[in-house]
Protein backbone atom coordinates (compact mmCIF):
# COMPACT_ATOMS: atom_id res chain seq x y z
CA UNK A 1 0.00 0.00 0.00
CA UNK A 2 1.29 3.35 -1.02
CA UNK A 3 0.67 5.09 2.24
CA UNK A 4 2.62 8.29 2.05
CA UNK A 5 2.47 11.66 3.71
CA UNK A 6 -0.34 13.99 2.61
CA UNK A 7 0.34 16.14 -0.40
CA UNK A 8 0.87 19.48 1.43
CA UNK A 9 3.65 17.98 3.52
CA UNK A 10 5.32 16.55 0.44
CA UNK A 11 5.17 19.91 -1.28
CA UNK A 12 6.47 21.73 1.78
CA UNK A 13 9.37 19.29 1.97
CA UNK A 14 10.11 19.77 -1.69
CA UNK A 15 10.16 23.53 -1.32
CA UNK A 16 12.16 23.24 1.83
CA UNK A 17 9.83 25.36 3.93
CA UNK A 18 9.02 24.12 7.37
CA UNK A 19 6.65 25.00 10.16
CA UNK A 20 3.38 26.83 9.78
CA UNK A 21 4.44 28.65 6.65
CA UNK A 22 5.25 25.33 5.03
CA UNK A 23 1.86 23.96 5.95
CA UNK A 24 0.12 27.01 4.51
CA UNK A 25 2.13 27.12 1.30
CA UNK A 26 1.98 23.37 0.86
CA UNK A 27 -1.76 23.40 1.47
CA UNK A 28 -2.36 26.19 -0.99
CA UNK A 29 -0.22 24.70 -3.72
CA UNK A 30 -1.69 21.25 -3.17
CA UNK A 31 -5.23 22.56 -3.23
CA UNK A 32 -4.47 24.50 -6.39
CA UNK A 33 -3.08 21.37 -8.01
CA UNK A 34 -6.08 19.22 -7.18
CA UNK A 35 -8.48 22.01 -8.02
CA UNK A 36 -6.83 22.38 -11.41
CA UNK A 37 -6.98 18.67 -12.02
CA UNK A 38 -10.68 18.59 -11.26
CA UNK A 39 -11.46 21.69 -13.28
CA UNK A 40 -9.52 20.29 -16.22
CA UNK A 41 -11.55 17.13 -16.06
CA UNK A 42 -14.70 19.19 -15.95
CA UNK A 43 -13.56 21.21 -18.93
CA UNK A 44 -13.00 18.03 -20.88
CA UNK A 45 -16.28 16.54 -19.74
CA UNK A 46 -18.63 19.48 -20.22
CA UNK A 47 -18.07 20.82 -23.71
CA UNK A 48 -16.49 17.75 -25.24
CA UNK A 49 -16.85 14.34 -23.61
CA UNK A 50 -20.52 14.76 -22.75
CA UNK A 51 -21.35 15.66 -26.32
CA UNK A 52 -19.31 12.80 -27.68
CA UNK A 53 -20.92 10.31 -25.32
CA UNK A 54 -24.45 11.53 -26.00
CA UNK A 55 -23.75 11.41 -29.71
CA UNK A 56 -22.52 7.84 -29.46
CA UNK A 57 -25.74 6.82 -27.76
CA UNK A 58 -27.83 8.57 -30.38
CA UNK A 59 -25.96 7.43 -33.50
CA UNK A 60 -24.66 10.85 -34.38
CA UNK A 61 -21.37 12.55 -34.99
CA UNK A 62 -20.57 15.18 -32.43
CA UNK A 63 -18.03 17.97 -32.07
CA UNK A 64 -15.42 17.08 -34.66
CA UNK A 65 -14.67 20.26 -36.52
CA UNK A 66 -12.56 22.30 -34.11
CA UNK A 67 -9.15 20.76 -33.65
CA UNK A 68 -8.28 17.06 -33.49
CA UNK A 69 -11.40 15.05 -32.64
CA UNK A 70 -13.04 18.35 -31.89
CA UNK A 71 -11.05 18.83 -28.70
CA UNK A 72 -10.44 22.52 -29.26
CA UNK A 73 -14.16 23.06 -28.83
CA UNK A 74 -13.27 23.31 -25.16
CA UNK A 75 -11.35 26.52 -25.80
CA UNK A 76 -13.95 27.79 -28.24
CA UNK A 77 -16.77 27.14 -25.81
CA UNK A 78 -14.91 28.77 -22.97
CA UNK A 79 -14.38 31.91 -25.01
CA UNK A 80 -17.98 31.85 -26.20
CA UNK A 81 -19.49 31.44 -22.76
CA UNK A 82 -17.25 33.96 -21.06
CA UNK A 83 -17.76 36.62 -23.70
CA UNK A 84 -21.53 36.52 -23.41
CA UNK A 85 -23.38 39.25 -21.65
CA UNK A 86 -24.09 38.64 -18.02
CA UNK A 87 -27.77 39.46 -17.85
CA UNK A 88 -29.04 40.42 -14.46
CA UNK A 89 -32.82 40.18 -14.51
CA UNK A 90 -34.95 42.75 -12.79
CA UNK A 91 -35.76 42.11 -9.17
CA UNK A 92 -33.24 39.41 -8.41
CA UNK A 93 -32.24 39.01 -4.81
CA UNK A 94 -28.75 40.33 -5.33
CA UNK A 95 -26.35 38.82 -2.83
CA UNK A 96 -28.10 35.45 -2.85
CA UNK A 97 -28.35 35.35 -6.62
CA UNK A 98 -24.65 36.13 -6.99
CA UNK A 99 -23.42 33.81 -4.31
CA UNK A 100 -25.34 30.76 -5.48
CA UNK A 101 -23.18 29.89 -8.54
CA UNK A 102 -20.00 30.38 -6.55
CA UNK A 103 -21.30 28.29 -3.71
CA UNK A 104 -22.37 25.51 -6.02
CA UNK A 105 -18.96 25.14 -7.66
CA UNK A 106 -17.10 25.70 -4.43
CA UNK A 107 -19.00 23.15 -2.35
CA UNK A 108 -18.19 20.36 -4.75
CA UNK A 109 -14.52 21.33 -5.03
CA UNK A 110 -14.12 21.34 -1.24
CA UNK A 111 -15.12 17.71 -1.08
CA UNK A 112 -12.00 16.64 -2.94
CA UNK A 113 -9.83 17.83 -0.04
CA UNK A 114 -10.19 14.57 1.82
CA UNK A 115 -10.32 12.13 -1.08
CA UNK A 116 -7.22 9.93 -1.37
CA UNK A 117 -6.34 9.76 -5.02
CA UNK A 118 -3.34 7.48 -4.85
CA UNK A 119 0.36 8.20 -5.25
CA UNK A 120 0.22 10.36 -2.18
CA UNK A 121 -2.15 12.83 -3.72
CA UNK A 122 -4.23 13.50 -0.68
CA UNK A 123 -4.75 16.96 0.71
CA UNK A 124 -5.92 16.09 4.19
CA UNK A 125 -6.91 12.99 6.02
CA UNK A 126 -9.07 13.94 8.97
CA UNK A 127 -10.61 11.21 11.08
CA UNK A 128 -14.08 12.28 10.08
CA UNK A 129 -13.27 12.47 6.37
CA UNK A 130 -16.47 10.78 5.22
CA UNK A 131 -18.71 13.01 7.30
CA UNK A 132 -16.86 16.03 5.97
CA UNK A 133 -17.46 15.03 2.34
CA UNK A 134 -21.19 14.65 2.83
CA UNK A 135 -21.35 17.84 4.83
CA UNK A 136 -19.72 20.03 2.19
CA UNK A 137 -21.44 18.31 -0.71
CA UNK A 138 -24.84 19.08 0.74
CA UNK A 139 -24.05 22.78 0.86
CA UNK A 140 -24.89 22.59 -2.83
CA UNK A 141 -28.56 22.24 -1.88
CA UNK A 142 -28.34 25.61 -0.21
CA UNK A 143 -26.91 27.04 -3.41
CA UNK A 144 -29.77 25.61 -5.43
CA UNK A 145 -32.33 27.14 -3.10
CA UNK A 146 -30.56 30.49 -3.25
CA UNK A 147 -30.46 30.35 -7.03
CA UNK A 148 -34.06 29.28 -7.28
CA UNK A 149 -35.38 31.78 -4.81
CA UNK A 150 -33.10 34.67 -5.74
CA UNK A 151 -33.85 34.57 -9.47
CA UNK A 152 -37.31 36.13 -9.18
CA UNK A 153 -38.58 33.65 -11.72
CA UNK A 154 -41.36 31.17 -11.16
CA UNK A 155 -39.64 28.40 -13.02
CA UNK A 156 -36.50 28.94 -10.94
CA UNK A 157 -38.64 28.94 -7.84
CA UNK A 158 -40.21 25.61 -8.80
CA UNK A 159 -36.75 24.22 -9.55
CA UNK A 160 -35.39 25.41 -6.22
CA UNK A 161 -38.29 23.89 -4.33
CA UNK A 162 -37.93 20.64 -6.20
CA UNK A 163 -34.22 20.63 -5.33
CA UNK A 164 -35.00 20.91 -1.63
CA UNK A 165 -37.59 18.16 -1.72
CA UNK A 166 -35.24 15.94 -3.67
CA UNK A 167 -32.28 16.61 -1.40
CA UNK A 168 -34.27 15.75 1.70
CA UNK A 169 -35.36 12.51 0.09
CA UNK A 170 -31.94 11.30 -0.94
CA UNK A 171 -29.47 12.65 1.64
CA UNK A 172 -30.58 10.35 4.43
CA UNK A 173 -30.39 7.12 2.40
CA UNK A 174 -27.06 8.24 1.01
CA UNK A 175 -25.56 8.69 4.46
CA UNK A 176 -27.15 5.50 5.76
CA UNK A 177 -25.62 3.44 2.96
CA UNK A 178 -22.26 5.07 3.58
CA UNK A 179 -22.68 4.15 7.24
CA UNK A 180 -22.87 0.49 6.28
CA UNK A 181 -19.46 0.85 4.67
CA UNK A 182 -18.16 2.43 7.82
CA UNK A 183 -19.38 -0.62 9.73
CA UNK A 184 -17.13 -2.77 7.56
CA UNK A 185 -14.09 -0.55 7.65
CA UNK A 186 -14.53 0.54 11.23
CA UNK A 187 -13.40 4.06 10.43
CA UNK A 188 -14.61 7.33 9.00
CA UNK A 189 -11.14 8.17 7.82
CA UNK A 190 -10.92 8.00 4.05
CA UNK A 191 -7.44 6.44 3.97
CA UNK A 192 -8.58 3.76 6.39
CA UNK A 193 -11.59 2.94 4.24
CA UNK A 194 -9.34 2.57 1.20
CA UNK A 195 -6.81 0.53 3.13
CA UNK A 196 -9.51 -1.81 4.39
CA UNK A 197 -10.49 -2.60 0.80
CA UNK A 198 -6.96 -3.66 -0.17
CA UNK A 199 -7.23 -7.00 1.57
CA UNK A 200 -7.92 -9.96 -0.69
CA UNK A 201 -11.50 -11.21 -0.63
CA UNK A 202 -11.14 -14.39 -2.58
CA UNK A 203 -8.96 -15.93 -5.21
CA UNK A 204 -10.55 -17.08 -8.44
CA UNK A 205 -8.36 -18.98 -10.90
CA UNK A 206 -5.21 -17.36 -9.66
CA UNK A 207 -6.64 -13.84 -9.79
CA UNK A 208 -7.03 -12.25 -6.42
CA UNK A 209 -10.26 -10.35 -5.98
CA UNK A 210 -9.74 -7.49 -3.55
CA UNK A 211 -12.34 -6.90 -0.89
CA UNK A 212 -13.77 -3.81 -2.51
CA UNK A 213 -17.07 -3.07 -0.87
CA UNK A 214 -18.76 -3.24 -4.25
CA UNK A 215 -17.91 -6.95 -4.19
CA UNK A 216 -18.47 -7.41 -0.49
CA UNK A 217 -21.87 -5.76 -0.51
CA UNK A 218 -23.17 -5.32 -4.08
CA UNK A 219 -26.59 -4.44 -2.74
CA UNK A 220 -25.26 -1.38 -0.94
CA UNK A 221 -23.26 -0.50 -4.04
CA UNK A 222 -26.34 -0.57 -6.26
CA UNK A 223 -28.30 1.49 -3.77
CA UNK A 224 -25.51 4.01 -3.52
CA UNK A 225 -25.27 4.33 -7.29
CA UNK A 226 -28.97 5.20 -7.44
CA UNK A 227 -28.74 7.60 -4.51
CA UNK A 228 -25.74 9.18 -6.18
CA UNK A 229 -27.70 9.74 -9.41
CA UNK A 230 -30.23 11.56 -7.26
CA UNK A 231 -27.50 13.57 -5.60
CA UNK A 232 -26.00 14.77 -8.86
CA UNK A 233 -29.44 15.26 -10.38
CA UNK A 234 -29.12 13.25 -13.55
CA UNK A 235 -31.78 11.20 -15.31
CA UNK A 236 -34.03 9.76 -14.13
CA UNK A 237 -33.69 12.26 -11.30
CA UNK A 238 -32.93 15.53 -13.09
CA UNK A 239 -36.10 16.97 -11.67
CA UNK A 240 -34.78 20.30 -10.34
CA UNK A 241 -33.68 21.20 -13.86
CA UNK A 242 -36.15 19.29 -16.02
CA UNK A 243 -35.62 21.39 -19.13
CA UNK A 244 -38.76 20.22 -20.89
CA UNK A 245 -40.95 20.92 -17.88
CA UNK A 246 -39.67 23.91 -15.99
CA UNK A 247 -37.33 25.29 -18.65
CA UNK A 248 -34.08 24.90 -16.71
CA UNK A 249 -35.24 25.11 -13.13
CA UNK A 250 -33.02 27.06 -10.78
CA UNK A 251 -30.55 28.00 -13.53
CA UNK A 252 -33.08 29.56 -15.88
CA UNK A 253 -31.97 33.13 -15.26
CA UNK A 254 -28.23 32.61 -15.28
CA UNK A 255 -26.06 33.54 -18.22
CA UNK A 256 -22.43 33.99 -19.09
CA UNK A 257 -19.96 33.48 -16.22
CA UNK A 258 -22.61 32.56 -13.71
CA UNK A 259 -23.94 29.94 -16.04
CA UNK A 260 -20.43 28.57 -16.48
CA UNK A 261 -20.03 28.36 -12.72
CA UNK A 262 -23.33 26.51 -12.32
CA UNK A 263 -22.51 24.19 -15.17
CA UNK A 264 -19.06 23.64 -13.72
CA UNK A 265 -20.52 23.01 -10.29
CA UNK A 266 -22.82 20.34 -11.66
CA UNK A 267 -20.01 18.51 -13.37
CA UNK A 268 -17.69 18.73 -10.39
CA UNK A 269 -20.56 17.30 -8.39
CA UNK A 270 -20.80 14.37 -10.73
CA UNK A 271 -17.06 13.85 -10.36
CA UNK A 272 -17.24 14.19 -6.60
CA UNK A 273 -20.00 11.60 -6.60
CA UNK A 274 -17.72 9.39 -8.69
CA UNK A 275 -14.85 10.00 -6.29
CA UNK A 276 -16.97 9.06 -3.28
CA UNK A 277 -18.15 5.90 -5.01
CA UNK A 278 -14.61 5.03 -6.02
CA UNK A 279 -13.37 5.55 -2.48
CA UNK A 280 -16.18 3.80 -0.66
CA UNK A 281 -16.86 0.92 -2.99
CA UNK A 282 -14.18 0.54 -5.64
CA UNK A 283 -11.03 0.48 -3.59
CA UNK A 284 -10.07 4.11 -4.18
CA UNK A 285 -6.93 4.33 -6.30
CA UNK A 286 -6.25 0.60 -6.15
CA UNK A 287 -5.59 -1.26 -9.38
CA UNK A 288 -2.88 -3.25 -11.12
CA UNK A 289 0.02 -1.99 -13.23
CA UNK A 290 -1.00 1.64 -13.73
CA UNK A 291 -0.34 4.27 -11.08
CA UNK A 292 -3.12 4.79 -8.55
CA UNK A 293 -4.08 8.28 -9.69
CA UNK A 294 -4.88 7.01 -13.17
CA UNK A 295 -7.01 4.21 -11.78
CA UNK A 296 -8.76 6.70 -9.60
CA UNK A 297 -9.54 9.01 -12.51
CA UNK A 298 -10.67 6.06 -14.61
CA UNK A 299 -13.12 5.05 -11.89
CA UNK A 300 -14.50 8.56 -11.66
CA UNK A 301 -15.02 8.64 -15.41
CA UNK A 302 -16.70 5.26 -15.31
CA UNK A 303 -19.27 6.70 -12.92
CA UNK A 304 -19.63 9.75 -15.17
CA UNK A 305 -20.22 7.47 -18.14
CA UNK A 306 -22.88 5.66 -16.17
CA UNK A 307 -24.76 8.90 -15.49
CA UNK A 308 -24.70 9.70 -19.19
CA UNK A 309 -25.84 6.22 -20.06
CA UNK A 310 -28.78 6.42 -17.69
CA UNK A 311 -29.59 9.77 -19.20
CA UNK A 312 -29.90 8.35 -22.69
CA UNK A 313 -32.35 5.62 -21.73
CA UNK A 314 -34.34 6.43 -18.61
CA UNK A 315 -37.36 8.71 -18.37
CA UNK A 316 -37.52 11.35 -15.73
CA UNK A 317 -39.60 10.59 -12.65
CA UNK A 318 -42.26 12.97 -11.48
CA UNK A 319 -41.46 14.92 -8.33
CA UNK A 320 -44.07 13.14 -6.21
CA UNK A 321 -42.88 9.80 -7.50
CA UNK A 322 -39.31 10.72 -6.65
CA UNK A 323 -40.29 11.60 -3.11
CA UNK A 324 -42.05 8.27 -2.90
CA UNK A 325 -39.01 6.41 -4.16
CA UNK A 326 -36.81 8.35 -1.77
CA UNK A 327 -38.81 7.96 1.43
CA UNK A 328 -40.66 4.71 0.89
CA UNK A 329 -38.08 2.85 -1.16
CA UNK A 330 -34.56 4.07 -0.68
CA UNK A 331 -34.85 4.92 2.99
CA UNK A 332 -36.34 1.55 3.91
CA UNK A 333 -33.86 -0.35 1.79
CA UNK A 334 -30.88 1.54 3.12
CA UNK A 335 -32.05 0.97 6.69
CA UNK A 336 -32.44 -2.72 5.94
CA UNK A 337 -28.98 -2.71 4.42
CA UNK A 338 -27.52 -1.03 7.47
CA UNK A 339 -29.22 -3.51 9.79
CA UNK A 340 -28.11 -6.49 7.74
CA UNK A 341 -24.54 -5.22 7.59
CA UNK A 342 -24.52 -4.60 11.31
CA UNK A 343 -25.69 -8.14 11.97
CA UNK A 344 -23.14 -9.67 9.59
CA UNK A 345 -20.28 -7.57 10.90
CA UNK A 346 -21.36 -8.36 14.46
CA UNK A 347 -21.44 -12.10 13.80
CA UNK A 348 -18.08 -12.19 12.04
CA UNK A 349 -16.33 -9.94 14.45
Amino acid sequence: MLQTAPLPDTIADLLGIGGTLGAVVGGLVGAALIGTLMLTMTAVAGPWAKRKITAAFTDRYAVNRVGPAGLLIIAADAVRLLSKELIVPEGVDRPAWDIAPLLLAWSALLGFAVIPMGNGIHLADPEIGLVYVFAVASIASLALVMAGYGSNNKYSMLGGLRAVAQNLAYEIPLVLIAASVVLFSGSLQMSEIVAAQAEPLASVAGVTVPSWYAFVNPFAFALFMIANLMEVGRNPFDIPEAPTEIVAGYQTEYSSVYFVLIYLGEFIHIFLGGAIIATLFLGGPAGPVLPGILWFIAKIWAVFLFTQWARSALPRLRIDQLIQVGWKGMLVLSLANLLLTAVIVGVIA
Partner: peptide, 18 residues
Protein backbone atom coordinates in the same frame (compact mmCIF):
# COMPACT_ATOMS: atom_id res chain seq x y z
CA UNK B 1 -43.26 12.74 -26.69
CA UNK B 2 -40.18 10.94 -25.41
CA UNK B 3 -38.35 14.21 -25.36
CA UNK B 4 -41.04 15.52 -23.03
CA UNK B 5 -41.04 12.52 -20.74
CA UNK B 6 -37.41 11.44 -20.82
CA UNK B 7 -35.67 14.77 -20.93
CA UNK B 8 -33.60 16.41 -23.57
CA UNK B 9 -30.91 13.78 -23.95
CA UNK B 10 -33.06 10.82 -24.75
CA UNK B 11 -31.85 8.52 -27.46
CA UNK B 12 -35.38 7.62 -28.54
CA UNK B 13 -35.83 11.02 -30.15
CA UNK B 14 -32.87 10.48 -32.42
CA UNK B 15 -33.86 6.93 -33.26
CA UNK B 16 -37.34 8.08 -34.20
CA UNK B 17 -35.84 10.72 -36.45
CA UNK B 18 -33.52 8.20 -37.99
Amino acid sequence: FCLDVFGDFTATFQYAFR
